[in-house]
Each structure stands twice: as structure tokens, then as C-alpha cells.
Amino acid sequence: MIGKYAFAGLVAMVMWLTACTHSGDSISDEPLVRINETILTKGMVYQAIPDGLSKEDSVIFAQDYINRWIRSELMISKADLNLTPEEKNVDQLLEEYRRSLLIHQYQQKLLEQKYSPLITGSEIKEYYTEMVDNFKLSRPIIKGVFVIVPQSAPNINVLKELYRSDDSEDLIKLEAYCFQNAKKYEVFLDHWLVIDDINKWLPEPIDRPERFIKNNTYYHTTDSLYQYYLSIKEYKLSNEVAPVEFVESKIKAILLNKKRLEFIKQLETDLYDEALKNKSITFY
């Protein structure tokens, strides 16, 4: 929606906003876009940009934010012109939504506090056994070791030996080495990771992960700054049944939801009885 000349101005605007944060200057209230009587200022766009974005990503985010603001304001203007006063009165709807949201959040909080600790491992395993066909993997998962070190890291040959080892003492040595030298270090021998969780850290994602996992135990690659080491100790492929520990949290959520209706009914009854006892309810 933003034209090429406006976009050039947007780039300059974002760079100026970034400079303001470094210099300590206040963010300008200078208008950026105006639709009828409504104005979007530079400061409003700046406040919307998430922290930590590069200048390039900030420009992209700001462009999208402005486009969405323009579309929204145009739609609001049309709605304001074409709806009757009764149709535009949404106060009751907003209040009903606010009440429903608060009730839901309170119920969910109590449900998790009361029932979540009471869901046992045996309940989880029983449900898993009964519904095992519903827990087929959509992506491969692995257990292993993953390390990223700078190209300048010392004693690389030691690292190459340690990350492949199954010996517990070597894992301790690996941890000590990585504490001093690694950008990222993860030993996930006691839990599963989706292969995508590793791919997002690699300079180039592993191609054909199913085939790769079946045929490789160790993987090493580099880019201009880092070296990447992956050791695969166990794996499960797509369409295999997920291990129970991998889907435990999902099963727990399902079991909690099954208790939800019973819990809410009892909660409402308890609150009603408590209010009568405390004389919080007055009948006329």
C-alpha cells in the first residue's frame, strides 16, 4: 500500500527513530499519516516496533504496521458512516466480553492449581495407551548433543572427541569446555527435540531430515563465523508413535480439559454456597 517514495521516507524515519534512542532525544509527535481527523505519529510507530530488531527488520515491521493502521482506520471510518447509533453502541458487548474473559482466566487458573498436580503419571500412561494411534509424529525427533563454537575456539580436536562420547565423565568435560567457549551448547539426552529445533540454528537446514537421521550419527558444518556439531543418540521418524514423554504435556492438557466441566460446575456451586453463608447475596 505504501508507494516507493513514501517507503523511502519510511526508511529515513526508522533510521531517525533509532538514532533518537541512542542519543536520548524524545520521540517526535510529528504526524506520519492522517485519515480524516485521525493521525498516526512517528512516535506511535516507534512505540510499536519490538526491541532488538535490526534497522532493516524495523523498516519492514513499520511498513506493515502503517499499512495495517491505514486499512483499519479506513474500515472504521466506513463503519462510523454506515452504522446506526444503536449498531455503534458496543459498550454492552465489550462489557460482556470483558466479564467472560475474566471468568475464563480465573477458572483456568484455579483448574491448573487444583487439578494439574493431581494428574498422575499412571493416568497419563493409561490415556497414552488407549489413544496411542493419535500420537503419530509429524516430524522426526532426536536425542543427542548440539554445540556451536566460534571458528577461533581452542582445542577443536578435543571437542570433536567429547561431543561424540557416551561416557558420563566426557560429558562433564564437554560441559566445562562449552561453558568457556561455546555460543550454544545443549545436551538433550533426557528429552526429545524436533529436528526443526536444530535446523533453525544451522547456517543451512539439514536436507531430507528423515534420510539424514537414519544414515548419520554425527554431523559437522561451518560458516564464516562458527562451527556446528551435532551428535544423534536416538531418533524417531515421522509416522512413528511418539514416546510418551514427548506428548506428556499434551495429554495432561487433554485430561485437564476433561475435568473442566465438572470442575466449573462444582466451583459455581461452592461460590454460591459461600456467598449465601457470608450473606453476600441479597434477595428482594
Rank of each mutant, 00 (worst) to 15 (best):
L81H: 10
Y177T: 01
W192M: 07
T129D: 12
T282R: 12
D91M: 03
K78P: 00
S249R: 11
C178W: 15
E130N: 08
I172S: 08
E248L: 08
K200Y: 09
L111R: 07
V147L: 06
S58N: 06
D29L: 07
Y115H: 12
R68H: 13
Q151W: 04
Y128W: 11
A182T: 04
R34F: 04
I76H: 04
S116L: 12
L17T: 09
V132E: 11
F7G: 00
L111V: 11
I35S: 01
K143R: 15
E130W: 10
M44S: 05
E248C: 06
N199V: 09
L230R: 04
I66T: 11
M1A: 15
E37N: 14
N67H: 04
A6F: 03
E30C: 05
D207M: 14
R68G: 06
I213R: 01
E210G: 14
L17F: 03
L230S: 05
P140A: 09
E123P: 06
V33F: 09
R99K: 12
D133C: 03
S23T: 15
L74G: 02
I124K: 03
C178Y: 15
E87M: 13
V132G: 00
N67I: 07
N181H: 15
V187E: 03
I232Y: 07
A176P: 00
K233Y: 13
V147W: 07
S23Y: 10
K173C: 05
I142K: 04
K136P: 01
D133R: 13
F283E: 00
A12N: 10
L93H: 00
S23R: 01
I27S: 03
D25F: 13
Y46D: 12
L267A: 09
A79T: 11
D270P: 05
L255I: 08
K277M: 06
P140L: 07
A275L: 08
I27Q: 09
C20G: 08
Y5W: 03
I281Q: 01
G9F: 03
L202R: 02
T269S: 10
Q266W: 10
N67V: 06
S116E: 08
L271S: 06
E210K: 13
L74I: 15
H191C: 01
L83W: 01
V33W: 03
F7E: 14
I2N: 05
I119V: 11
Y46S: 14
L225N: 14
S54V: 05
Y115N: 10
I142W: 06
L40C: 02
R211N: 14
K109Y: 14
I142L: 14
V45Y: 03
L261Q: 12
Y219W: 12
F212W: 14
E245I: 11
T18Q: 09
K200V: 14
K143P: 10
A176I: 10
L102V: 06
Y65K: 02
V158A: 08
Y163I: 03
D51P: 00
L261F: 13
N82R: 11
Q92F: 05
